[in-house]
């Protein structure tokens, strides 16, 4: 599975369609759409200027909010949306110094 950053995904968007990928980036300030009923979470992942829309099926992790680092695994569909089956947020590791990230 390719492990990519958001700019890399944007660059090679056409060749990556349908491939299983793992992408690291940040949750941008674009609106987050959380459908509790269907456990569907839509948000935009970014890194620098690059952006990709993500749709994740599953439970919204506790740490998930604007500005946090996330890693997602899934495939990019024909609509250009990354359909993710795995969404990981940075764990509140004991090793991390708690500097509240402001973006």
């Amino acid at each position: 599975m390719y492990f990519l950053t958001v700019p890399e995904v944007q660059q090679k968007l056409t060749t990556l369609k349908g491939e299983p990928i793992r992408v690291a980036g940040k949750v941008t300030e674009d609106p987050i759409n959380w459908d509790v009923r269907n456990l569907s979470l839509a948000f935009v992942m970014g890194d620098g200027q690059a952006r990709i829309p993500v749709r994740y099926k599953g439970v919204k992790p506790d740490m998930f909010q604007t500005g946090v680092d996330v890693i997602v695994e899934g495939r990019i569909g024909h609509d250009g949306v990354l359909a993710a089956s795995v969404l990981m947020t940075s764990c509140p590791s004991k090793y991390q110094e708690e500097k509240s990230p402001t973006l």
């Binding site: 492990f3 690291a24 680092d69 890693i71 940075s90 764990c91 509140p92 590791s93 090793y95 991390q96």
Partner: peptide, 14 residues
């Protein structure tokens, strides 16, 4: 590994 941040992990390494 847990302290240098060489590998991305769900644990946010410092």
């Amino acid at each position: 590994l847990t302290r240098s941040g060489v590998i991305s992990s769900v644990h946010a390494f410092a």
